[in-house]
Design a protein around this nucleic acid. Structure first.
Lengths: 235, 235
DNA sequence: GCCGGAGCAATTGCATACACTTTTTGCCTT
DNA sequence: AAGGCAAAAAGTGTATGCAATTGCTCCGGC
Protein backbone atom coordinates (compact mmCIF):
# COMPACT_ATOMS: atom_id res chain seq x y z
CA UNK A 1 0.00 0.00 0.00
CA UNK A 2 1.18 3.49 -0.75
CA UNK A 3 0.83 6.57 1.43
CA UNK A 4 -0.63 6.58 4.87
CA UNK A 5 -3.62 8.77 5.51
CA UNK A 6 -2.69 9.84 8.97
CA UNK A 7 -3.54 13.35 7.98
CA UNK A 8 -7.19 12.43 8.08
CA UNK A 9 -8.95 12.60 11.34
CA UNK A 10 -9.67 9.85 13.72
CA UNK A 11 -11.93 6.87 14.11
CA UNK A 12 -11.48 3.44 12.71
CA UNK A 13 -10.98 3.10 8.99
CA UNK A 14 -14.48 1.75 8.57
CA UNK A 15 -15.92 4.85 10.22
CA UNK A 16 -13.98 7.06 7.87
CA UNK A 17 -15.25 5.10 4.90
CA UNK A 18 -18.81 5.28 6.15
CA UNK A 19 -18.53 9.02 6.50
CA UNK A 20 -16.76 9.46 3.21
CA UNK A 21 -19.19 7.38 1.20
CA UNK A 22 -22.30 8.67 2.90
CA UNK A 23 -21.13 12.23 2.34
CA UNK A 24 -20.69 11.53 -1.33
CA UNK A 25 -24.12 10.00 -1.51
CA UNK A 26 -25.82 12.73 0.45
CA UNK A 27 -24.27 15.49 -1.59
CA UNK A 28 -25.16 13.75 -4.80
CA UNK A 29 -21.62 13.10 -5.90
CA UNK A 30 -22.64 9.48 -5.99
CA UNK A 31 -25.98 9.37 -7.69
CA UNK A 32 -28.96 7.17 -6.79
CA UNK A 33 -28.81 3.81 -8.51
CA UNK A 34 -25.11 4.14 -9.20
CA UNK A 35 -23.09 1.00 -8.73
CA UNK A 36 -20.61 0.94 -5.90
CA UNK A 37 -17.69 -1.20 -6.89
CA UNK A 38 -15.68 -2.39 -3.92
CA UNK A 39 -12.34 -2.42 -5.66
CA UNK A 40 -12.82 1.05 -7.11
CA UNK A 41 -13.84 2.50 -3.78
CA UNK A 42 -10.91 0.81 -2.11
CA UNK A 43 -8.55 2.27 -4.65
CA UNK A 44 -10.21 5.67 -4.48
CA UNK A 45 -9.70 5.92 -0.74
CA UNK A 46 -6.47 3.99 -0.64
CA UNK A 47 -7.63 1.27 1.70
CA UNK A 48 -8.25 -2.42 1.26
CA UNK A 49 -11.58 -3.89 0.30
CA UNK A 50 -12.28 -5.18 3.78
CA UNK A 51 -13.24 -1.91 5.47
CA UNK A 52 -15.09 -0.89 2.32
CA UNK A 53 -17.19 -4.01 2.55
CA UNK A 54 -18.05 -3.39 6.16
CA UNK A 55 -18.80 0.26 5.46
CA UNK A 56 -21.19 -0.80 2.71
CA UNK A 57 -22.88 -3.15 5.15
CA UNK A 58 -23.45 -0.35 7.60
CA UNK A 59 -24.63 2.03 4.93
CA UNK A 60 -27.00 -0.67 3.82
CA UNK A 61 -28.35 -0.91 7.34
CA UNK A 62 -28.73 2.86 7.33
CA UNK A 63 -30.73 2.64 4.15
CA UNK A 64 -28.31 4.68 2.09
CA UNK A 65 -27.20 1.82 -0.15
CA UNK A 66 -28.78 -1.38 -1.30
CA UNK A 67 -26.97 -4.67 -1.41
CA UNK A 68 -27.77 -7.85 -3.20
CA UNK A 69 -25.77 -11.01 -2.60
CA UNK A 70 -23.10 -11.63 -5.19
CA UNK A 71 -24.31 -8.63 -7.09
CA UNK A 72 -22.71 -5.72 -5.36
CA UNK A 73 -24.03 -2.54 -3.88
CA UNK A 74 -25.78 0.45 -5.40
CA UNK A 75 -26.72 3.83 -4.05
CA UNK A 76 -30.24 3.51 -2.72
CA UNK A 77 -32.90 5.02 -4.88
CA UNK A 78 -35.23 7.03 -2.71
CA UNK A 79 -38.44 7.65 -4.50
CA UNK A 80 -40.73 10.56 -3.84
CA UNK A 81 -43.20 8.20 -2.20
CA UNK A 82 -40.63 6.60 -0.01
CA UNK A 83 -39.47 9.98 1.16
CA UNK A 84 -43.03 10.96 1.95
CA UNK A 85 -43.44 7.68 3.76
CA UNK A 86 -40.41 8.43 5.90
CA UNK A 87 -41.64 11.88 6.82
CA UNK A 88 -45.01 10.43 7.62
CA UNK A 89 -43.41 7.84 9.88
CA UNK A 90 -41.36 10.55 11.48
CA UNK A 91 -44.49 12.51 12.26
CA UNK A 92 -46.11 9.51 13.87
CA UNK A 93 -43.00 8.66 15.85
CA UNK A 94 -42.59 12.19 17.10
CA UNK A 95 -46.23 12.18 18.06
CA UNK A 96 -45.70 9.06 20.11
CA UNK A 97 -42.65 10.55 21.78
CA UNK A 98 -44.53 13.74 22.58
CA UNK A 99 -47.47 11.82 24.00
CA UNK A 100 -45.28 9.64 26.13
CA UNK A 101 -43.23 12.63 27.21
CA UNK A 102 -46.36 14.39 28.35
CA UNK A 103 -47.20 11.37 30.46
CA UNK A 104 -43.82 10.24 31.67
CA UNK A 105 -41.29 13.04 31.85
CA UNK A 106 -39.94 13.63 35.29
CA UNK A 107 -40.30 17.03 36.90
CA UNK A 108 -36.65 17.68 36.18
CA UNK A 109 -36.97 16.80 32.53
CA UNK A 110 -39.97 19.06 32.14
CA UNK A 111 -38.15 21.90 33.81
CA UNK A 112 -35.13 21.56 31.58
CA UNK A 113 -37.22 21.23 28.46
CA UNK A 114 -39.14 24.37 29.20
CA UNK A 115 -36.06 26.32 30.26
CA UNK A 116 -34.09 25.39 27.15
CA UNK A 117 -37.05 26.12 24.98
CA UNK A 118 -37.51 29.57 26.47
CA UNK A 119 -33.81 30.24 26.11
CA UNK A 120 -33.98 29.36 22.44
CA UNK A 121 -36.32 32.30 21.86
CA UNK A 122 -33.20 34.42 21.91
CA UNK A 123 -31.70 32.46 19.04
CA UNK A 124 -34.80 33.20 17.00
CA UNK A 125 -34.57 36.90 17.71
CA UNK A 126 -30.95 36.94 16.66
CA UNK A 127 -31.80 34.87 13.63
CA UNK A 128 -28.79 32.62 14.03
CA UNK A 129 -29.91 29.66 11.99
CA UNK A 130 -26.84 27.54 12.54
CA UNK A 131 -27.22 27.66 16.30
CA UNK A 132 -30.95 27.25 16.23
CA UNK A 133 -30.55 24.15 14.13
CA UNK A 134 -28.24 22.79 16.79
CA UNK A 135 -30.71 23.62 19.51
CA UNK A 136 -33.53 22.17 17.47
CA UNK A 137 -31.80 18.80 17.25
CA UNK A 138 -31.23 18.86 20.97
CA UNK A 139 -34.83 19.80 21.63
CA UNK A 140 -36.16 16.90 19.66
CA UNK A 141 -33.68 14.49 21.19
CA UNK A 142 -34.92 15.63 24.58
CA UNK A 143 -38.41 14.75 23.46
CA UNK A 144 -37.35 11.32 22.29
CA UNK A 145 -35.62 10.61 25.56
CA UNK A 146 -38.54 11.92 27.54
CA UNK A 147 -40.65 9.09 26.20
CA UNK A 148 -38.68 6.76 28.46
CA UNK A 149 -38.84 3.99 25.92
CA UNK A 150 -35.56 2.80 24.58
CA UNK A 151 -36.98 1.14 21.52
CA UNK A 152 -39.13 4.06 20.49
CA UNK A 153 -36.06 6.17 20.94
CA UNK A 154 -34.05 3.93 18.65
CA UNK A 155 -36.69 3.86 15.95
CA UNK A 156 -37.08 7.61 16.06
CA UNK A 157 -33.38 8.38 15.95
CA UNK A 158 -32.91 5.94 13.13
CA UNK A 159 -35.67 7.51 11.10
CA UNK A 160 -34.34 10.96 11.77
CA UNK A 161 -30.95 9.78 10.56
CA UNK A 162 -32.40 8.53 7.32
CA UNK A 163 -34.19 11.78 6.78
CA UNK A 164 -31.25 13.99 7.62
CA UNK A 165 -30.00 14.24 4.05
CA UNK A 166 -33.32 15.57 2.91
CA UNK A 167 -33.98 18.33 5.31
CA UNK A 168 -30.79 20.24 5.37
CA UNK A 169 -32.16 23.47 4.14
CA UNK A 170 -35.41 23.70 6.01
CA UNK A 171 -34.38 26.70 8.07
CA UNK A 172 -33.36 28.68 5.06
CA UNK A 173 -36.96 29.45 4.30
CA UNK A 174 -37.82 32.93 5.54
CA UNK A 175 -39.72 33.06 8.80
CA UNK A 176 -39.19 29.37 9.38
CA UNK A 177 -37.28 30.00 12.60
CA UNK A 178 -40.06 31.87 14.31
CA UNK A 179 -42.65 29.43 13.11
CA UNK A 180 -40.60 26.51 14.34
CA UNK A 181 -40.38 28.13 17.76
CA UNK A 182 -44.13 28.62 17.89
CA UNK A 183 -44.66 24.97 17.07
CA UNK A 184 -42.19 23.94 19.72
CA UNK A 185 -44.05 26.16 22.10
CA UNK A 186 -47.30 24.34 21.44
CA UNK A 187 -45.60 21.02 22.16
CA UNK A 188 -43.92 22.24 25.32
CA UNK A 189 -47.09 23.79 26.65
CA UNK A 190 -49.04 20.59 26.11
CA UNK A 191 -46.33 18.53 27.78
CA UNK A 192 -46.21 20.85 30.77
CA UNK A 193 -49.94 20.45 31.12
CA UNK A 194 -49.55 16.69 30.82
CA UNK A 195 -51.95 16.79 27.90
CA UNK A 196 -50.66 13.86 25.90
CA UNK A 197 -53.21 14.09 23.10
CA UNK A 198 -52.45 17.74 22.46
CA UNK A 199 -48.72 17.12 22.63
CA UNK A 200 -49.08 14.33 20.09
CA UNK A 201 -51.00 16.33 17.54
CA UNK A 202 -48.76 19.36 18.01
CA UNK A 203 -45.67 17.25 17.38
CA UNK A 204 -47.23 15.60 14.39
CA UNK A 205 -48.14 18.93 12.86
CA UNK A 206 -44.66 20.22 13.50
CA UNK A 207 -43.06 17.43 11.51
CA UNK A 208 -45.65 17.65 8.80
CA UNK A 209 -44.77 21.26 8.24
CA UNK A 210 -41.08 20.49 8.15
CA UNK A 211 -41.91 17.81 5.65
CA UNK A 212 -43.63 20.27 3.37
CA UNK A 213 -40.82 22.74 3.81
CA UNK A 214 -38.36 20.08 2.70
CA UNK A 215 -40.41 18.82 -0.16
CA UNK A 216 -38.90 21.54 -2.30
CA UNK A 217 -35.46 20.06 -2.05
CA UNK A 218 -36.03 16.81 -3.77
CA UNK A 219 -32.95 14.87 -4.58
CA UNK A 220 -32.16 12.64 -7.47
CA UNK A 221 -33.00 14.70 -10.51
CA UNK A 222 -29.78 16.55 -10.86
CA UNK A 223 -27.93 17.26 -14.06
CA UNK A 224 -25.52 14.50 -14.92
CA UNK A 225 -21.81 14.95 -15.07
CA UNK A 226 -19.55 16.77 -12.75
CA UNK A 227 -21.62 16.87 -9.60
CA UNK A 228 -19.73 19.76 -8.16
CA UNK A 229 -16.29 19.38 -6.65
CA UNK A 230 -16.49 17.78 -3.31
CA UNK A 231 -14.91 19.33 -0.25
CA UNK A 232 -11.85 17.26 -0.73
CA UNK A 233 -11.10 16.59 2.91
CA UNK A 234 -11.87 12.96 3.28
CA UNK A 235 -14.52 12.45 5.93
CA UNK B 1 -9.49 -25.31 5.60
CA UNK B 2 -10.68 -28.82 6.34
CA UNK B 3 -14.07 -30.35 5.63
CA UNK B 4 -16.84 -28.74 3.70
CA UNK B 5 -20.14 -28.24 5.45
CA UNK B 6 -22.40 -29.02 2.56
CA UNK B 7 -24.61 -30.83 5.00
CA UNK B 8 -25.83 -27.50 6.30
CA UNK B 9 -28.49 -25.87 4.25
CA UNK B 10 -27.91 -23.33 1.58
CA UNK B 11 -27.38 -19.62 1.33
CA UNK B 12 -24.15 -17.71 1.62
CA UNK B 13 -21.83 -18.60 4.45
CA UNK B 14 -22.67 -15.39 6.24
CA UNK B 15 -26.35 -16.27 6.20
CA UNK B 16 -25.61 -19.64 7.69
CA UNK B 17 -23.56 -18.03 10.43
CA UNK B 18 -26.29 -15.51 11.16
CA UNK B 19 -28.81 -18.31 11.48
CA UNK B 20 -26.51 -20.49 13.51
CA UNK B 21 -25.53 -17.79 15.95
CA UNK B 22 -28.97 -16.28 16.29
CA UNK B 23 -30.41 -19.73 16.92
CA UNK B 24 -27.94 -20.28 19.69
CA UNK B 25 -28.77 -16.93 21.18
CA UNK B 26 -32.50 -17.34 20.91
CA UNK B 27 -32.49 -20.79 22.42
CA UNK B 28 -30.34 -19.60 25.27
CA UNK B 29 -27.35 -21.74 24.37
CA UNK B 30 -25.45 -18.51 24.20
CA UNK B 31 -26.43 -16.52 27.21
CA UNK B 32 -27.05 -12.75 27.44
CA UNK B 33 -23.88 -10.85 28.14
CA UNK B 34 -21.68 -13.71 27.02
CA UNK B 35 -18.65 -12.73 25.01
CA UNK B 36 -18.59 -13.76 21.38
CA UNK B 37 -15.03 -14.40 20.37
CA UNK B 38 -14.55 -14.27 16.62
CA UNK B 39 -11.80 -16.84 16.48
CA UNK B 40 -13.69 -19.31 18.65
CA UNK B 41 -16.84 -18.96 16.62
CA UNK B 42 -14.85 -19.34 13.43
CA UNK B 43 -13.28 -22.52 14.75
CA UNK B 44 -16.59 -23.77 16.10
CA UNK B 45 -18.28 -23.50 12.70
CA UNK B 46 -15.23 -24.29 10.66
CA UNK B 47 -15.15 -21.06 8.69
CA UNK B 48 -12.81 -18.11 8.65
CA UNK B 49 -13.25 -15.01 10.76
CA UNK B 50 -14.43 -12.93 7.84
CA UNK B 51 -17.98 -14.27 7.54
CA UNK B 52 -18.20 -14.42 11.32
CA UNK B 53 -17.43 -10.73 11.52
CA UNK B 54 -20.06 -9.86 8.97
CA UNK B 55 -22.58 -12.09 10.69
CA UNK B 56 -21.90 -10.30 13.97
CA UNK B 57 -22.45 -7.00 12.22
CA UNK B 58 -25.83 -8.10 10.99
CA UNK B 59 -26.81 -9.55 14.33
CA UNK B 60 -25.79 -6.28 15.86
CA UNK B 61 -28.08 -4.45 13.47
CA UNK B 62 -30.83 -6.87 14.44
CA UNK B 63 -30.26 -6.06 18.07
CA UNK B 64 -29.28 -9.57 19.08
CA UNK B 65 -25.66 -8.76 19.85
CA UNK B 66 -23.85 -5.66 20.94
CA UNK B 67 -20.57 -4.54 19.48
CA UNK B 68 -18.03 -2.11 20.74
CA UNK B 69 -15.08 -1.06 18.63
CA UNK B 70 -11.92 -2.98 19.42
CA UNK B 71 -13.68 -4.67 22.26
CA UNK B 72 -15.56 -7.48 20.62
CA UNK B 73 -19.16 -8.55 20.61
CA UNK B 74 -21.42 -9.83 23.34
CA UNK B 75 -24.87 -11.33 23.33
CA UNK B 76 -27.26 -8.47 23.84
CA UNK B 77 -28.71 -8.18 27.28
CA UNK B 78 -32.41 -7.53 27.00
CA UNK B 79 -33.72 -6.15 30.22
CA UNK B 80 -37.26 -6.45 31.38
CA UNK B 81 -37.77 -2.76 30.68
CA UNK B 82 -36.32 -2.94 27.22
CA UNK B 83 -38.57 -5.85 26.39
CA UNK B 84 -41.56 -3.92 27.66
CA UNK B 85 -40.41 -0.97 25.61
CA UNK B 86 -40.32 -3.10 22.50
CA UNK B 87 -43.79 -4.46 23.05
CA UNK B 88 -45.02 -0.97 23.70
CA UNK B 89 -43.47 0.22 20.46
CA UNK B 90 -44.98 -2.73 18.68
CA UNK B 91 -48.40 -1.79 19.98
CA UNK B 92 -48.01 1.76 18.75
CA UNK B 93 -46.70 0.66 15.39
CA UNK B 94 -49.51 -1.82 14.89
CA UNK B 95 -51.95 0.89 15.84
CA UNK B 96 -50.50 3.15 13.17
CA UNK B 97 -50.69 0.37 10.60
CA UNK B 98 -54.28 -0.37 11.51
CA UNK B 99 -55.25 3.29 11.33
CA UNK B 100 -53.60 3.75 7.97
CA UNK B 101 -55.06 0.50 6.73
CA UNK B 102 -58.53 1.69 7.67
CA UNK B 103 -57.93 4.81 5.63
CA UNK B 104 -55.93 3.53 2.72
CA UNK B 105 -56.57 -0.10 1.95
CA UNK B 106 -57.92 -0.70 -1.52
CA UNK B 107 -61.22 -2.45 -1.96
CA UNK B 108 -59.34 -5.56 -2.99
CA UNK B 109 -57.14 -5.52 0.07
CA UNK B 110 -60.11 -5.13 2.35
CA UNK B 111 -61.88 -7.98 0.68
CA UNK B 112 -58.92 -10.31 1.01
CA UNK B 113 -58.31 -9.31 4.61
CA UNK B 114 -61.88 -10.01 5.58
CA UNK B 115 -62.06 -13.25 3.61
CA UNK B 116 -58.85 -14.63 5.08
CA UNK B 117 -59.89 -13.58 8.52
CA UNK B 118 -63.22 -15.33 8.22
CA UNK B 119 -61.51 -18.41 6.87
CA UNK B 120 -59.22 -18.48 9.88
CA UNK B 121 -62.20 -19.05 12.14
CA UNK B 122 -62.03 -22.64 11.03
CA UNK B 123 -58.47 -22.93 12.30
CA UNK B 124 -59.66 -21.76 15.70
CA UNK B 125 -62.43 -24.34 15.78
CA UNK B 126 -59.98 -27.07 14.90
CA UNK B 127 -57.56 -25.71 17.44
CA UNK B 128 -54.56 -26.11 15.14
CA UNK B 129 -52.13 -23.74 16.79
CA UNK B 130 -49.30 -24.27 14.34
CA UNK B 131 -51.42 -23.27 11.38
CA UNK B 132 -53.13 -20.44 13.17
CA UNK B 133 -49.77 -19.01 14.08
CA UNK B 134 -48.87 -19.09 10.42
CA UNK B 135 -52.08 -17.37 9.50
CA UNK B 136 -51.60 -14.89 12.30
CA UNK B 137 -48.28 -13.78 10.91
CA UNK B 138 -49.80 -13.40 7.50
CA UNK B 139 -52.71 -11.44 8.90
CA UNK B 140 -50.46 -8.94 10.58
CA UNK B 141 -48.23 -8.64 7.57
CA UNK B 142 -51.34 -7.83 5.56
CA UNK B 143 -52.08 -5.09 8.02
CA UNK B 144 -48.59 -3.68 7.74
CA UNK B 145 -48.76 -3.66 3.97
CA UNK B 146 -52.20 -2.15 4.01
CA UNK B 147 -50.77 0.98 5.57
CA UNK B 148 -49.19 1.74 2.18
CA UNK B 149 -46.16 3.23 3.82
CA UNK B 150 -42.88 1.52 3.09
CA UNK B 151 -41.05 2.99 6.01
CA UNK B 152 -43.71 2.19 8.58
CA UNK B 153 -43.70 -1.27 7.15
CA UNK B 154 -39.97 -1.58 7.62
CA UNK B 155 -40.05 -0.31 11.18
CA UNK B 156 -42.87 -2.64 12.07
CA UNK B 157 -41.34 -5.72 10.54
CA UNK B 158 -38.03 -4.95 12.18
CA UNK B 159 -39.62 -4.59 15.58
CA UNK B 160 -41.59 -7.75 15.12
CA UNK B 161 -38.36 -9.52 14.23
CA UNK B 162 -36.70 -8.35 17.39
CA UNK B 163 -39.63 -9.50 19.44
CA UNK B 164 -39.95 -12.87 17.76
CA UNK B 165 -37.70 -14.68 20.22
CA UNK B 166 -39.85 -13.56 23.12
CA UNK B 167 -43.28 -14.49 22.01
CA UNK B 168 -42.90 -17.99 20.83
CA UNK B 169 -45.26 -19.60 23.22
CA UNK B 170 -48.10 -17.13 23.27
CA UNK B 171 -50.59 -19.49 21.67
CA UNK B 172 -49.93 -22.22 24.14
CA UNK B 173 -52.03 -20.45 26.71
CA UNK B 174 -55.49 -22.00 26.81
CA UNK B 175 -58.20 -20.08 25.01
CA UNK B 176 -55.68 -17.77 23.45
CA UNK B 177 -56.64 -18.81 19.94
CA UNK B 178 -60.27 -17.84 20.26
CA UNK B 179 -59.40 -14.61 22.00
CA UNK B 180 -56.89 -13.73 19.33
CA UNK B 181 -59.54 -14.27 16.69
CA UNK B 182 -61.98 -12.01 18.50
CA UNK B 183 -59.36 -9.29 18.67
CA UNK B 184 -58.61 -9.68 15.00
CA UNK B 185 -62.29 -9.42 14.36
CA UNK B 186 -62.49 -6.07 16.10
CA UNK B 187 -59.64 -4.80 13.97
CA UNK B 188 -61.10 -6.10 10.75
CA UNK B 189 -64.53 -4.72 11.49
CA UNK B 190 -63.12 -1.29 12.21
CA UNK B 191 -61.06 -1.35 9.04
CA UNK B 192 -64.04 -2.39 6.94
CA UNK B 193 -65.96 0.52 8.38
CA UNK B 194 -63.04 2.80 7.63
CA UNK B 195 -62.98 3.74 11.28
CA UNK B 196 -59.30 4.46 11.72
CA UNK B 197 -59.48 5.44 15.37
CA UNK B 198 -61.27 2.24 16.35
CA UNK B 199 -58.89 0.16 14.23
CA UNK B 200 -55.95 1.79 15.96
CA UNK B 201 -57.10 1.16 19.49
CA UNK B 202 -58.20 -2.37 18.66
CA UNK B 203 -54.78 -3.16 17.23
CA UNK B 204 -53.03 -1.59 20.17
CA UNK B 205 -55.08 -3.61 22.62
CA UNK B 206 -54.38 -6.74 20.65
CA UNK B 207 -50.63 -6.35 20.96
CA UNK B 208 -50.87 -5.31 24.57
CA UNK B 209 -52.60 -8.55 25.40
CA UNK B 210 -50.01 -10.56 23.51
CA UNK B 211 -47.42 -8.65 25.46
CA UNK B 212 -48.92 -9.69 28.75
CA UNK B 213 -49.30 -13.23 27.54
CA UNK B 214 -45.61 -13.31 26.71
CA UNK B 215 -44.47 -11.65 29.88
CA UNK B 216 -44.40 -15.03 31.53
CA UNK B 217 -41.57 -16.21 29.37
CA UNK B 218 -38.96 -13.79 30.46
CA UNK B 219 -35.47 -14.54 29.33
CA UNK B 220 -32.18 -13.86 30.93
CA UNK B 221 -32.59 -15.03 34.50
CA UNK B 222 -32.18 -18.66 33.88
CA UNK B 223 -30.12 -21.11 35.87
CA UNK B 224 -26.66 -21.43 34.47
CA UNK B 225 -25.70 -24.36 32.34
CA UNK B 226 -28.13 -26.00 30.06
CA UNK B 227 -30.56 -23.17 29.49
CA UNK B 228 -33.72 -25.14 29.44
CA UNK B 229 -34.95 -26.29 26.05
CA UNK B 230 -37.06 -23.55 24.65
CA UNK B 231 -40.70 -24.25 23.77
CA UNK B 232 -39.69 -25.77 20.54
CA UNK B 233 -42.46 -24.56 18.27
CA UNK B 234 -40.66 -22.01 16.19
CA UNK B 235 -42.68 -18.78 16.00
C1' DG C 1 -31.94 -13.72 -38.07
C1' DC C 2 -32.75 -15.17 -33.50
C1' DC C 3 -32.16 -18.07 -29.60
C1' DG C 4 -29.22 -20.88 -26.54
C1' DG C 5 -25.06 -22.51 -24.44
C1' DA C 6 -20.01 -22.59 -23.50
C1' DG C 7 -16.13 -19.94 -22.34
C1' DC C 8 -14.20 -15.72 -20.47
C1' DA C 9 -13.86 -11.44 -17.92
C1' DA C 10 -15.23 -8.95 -13.96
C1' DT C 11 -16.65 -8.72 -9.34
C1' DT C 12 -18.05 -10.54 -5.00
C1' DG C 13 -17.32 -13.95 -1.16
C1' DC C 14 -14.09 -16.35 1.79
C1' DA C 15 -9.54 -17.47 3.76
C1' DT C 16 -5.36 -16.25 5.74
C1' DA C 17 -1.60 -13.23 7.13
C1' DC C 18 -0.22 -9.10 9.29
C1' DA C 19 -0.84 -4.74 12.29
C1' DC C 20 -2.68 -2.38 15.92
C1' DT C 21 -5.46 -2.09 20.44
C1' DT C 22 -6.79 -3.71 24.58
C1' DT C 23 -6.29 -6.52 28.56
C1' DT C 24 -3.90 -9.28 31.53
C1' DT C 25 -0.01 -10.80 34.11
C1' DG C 26 3.92 -10.41 36.67
C1' DC C 27 7.57 -7.80 38.38
C1' DC C 28 9.37 -3.84 40.58
C1' DT C 29 8.93 0.07 43.49
C1' DT C 30 7.21 2.40 47.48
C1' DA D 1 1.45 -5.77 50.89
C1' DA D 2 -0.52 -2.65 47.66
C1' DG D 3 -0.09 0.03 43.68
C1' DG D 4 1.57 0.97 39.27
C1' DC D 5 4.11 0.20 35.15
C1' DA D 6 5.61 -2.74 31.36
C1' DA D 7 5.76 -6.48 28.52
C1' DA D 8 3.37 -10.25 26.64
C1' DA D 9 -0.82 -12.44 25.33
C1' DA D 10 -5.24 -12.23 23.48
C1' DG D 11 -8.33 -10.36 20.24
C1' DT D 12 -9.99 -7.07 16.94
C1' DG D 13 -9.00 -4.32 12.61
C1' DT D 14 -7.00 -4.29 7.99
C1' DA D 15 -4.64 -6.11 3.87
C1' DT D 16 -4.16 -9.31 0.31
C1' DG D 17 -4.71 -13.58 -2.26
C1' DC D 18 -7.57 -17.23 -3.92
C1' DA D 19 -12.16 -19.40 -4.96
C1' DA D 20 -16.74 -19.00 -6.58
C1' DT D 21 -20.45 -16.72 -8.63
C1' DT D 22 -22.40 -13.63 -12.02
C1' DG D 23 -22.93 -11.45 -16.46
C1' DC D 24 -21.36 -10.99 -20.96
C1' DT D 25 -19.61 -12.23 -25.43
C1' DC D 26 -19.10 -15.04 -29.07
C1' DC D 27 -19.96 -19.02 -31.59
C1' DG D 28 -22.93 -22.62 -33.38
C1' DG D 29 -27.48 -24.48 -34.31
C1' DC D 30 -32.21 -24.05 -35.67
Amino acid sequence: MSGKRNLIRSGTTVDQMVRAISDRIVTGFLRPGEKLDEASLAARFDVSRTPIREALSRLSAMGLVERRPNRGATVAVVTQEHLASMFESMAELEAICARFSAERMTAGERRTLEAEHQASARLVQLGVEEEYELFNTEFHTRLYRGAHSKHIYELTVMTRGRLAPFRRAQFMLPGRLAQSWQEHDAIVTAIMRGDSAAAGTAAKDHVSIVSEASAVFVIGDRPKGKAEPFPTSVS
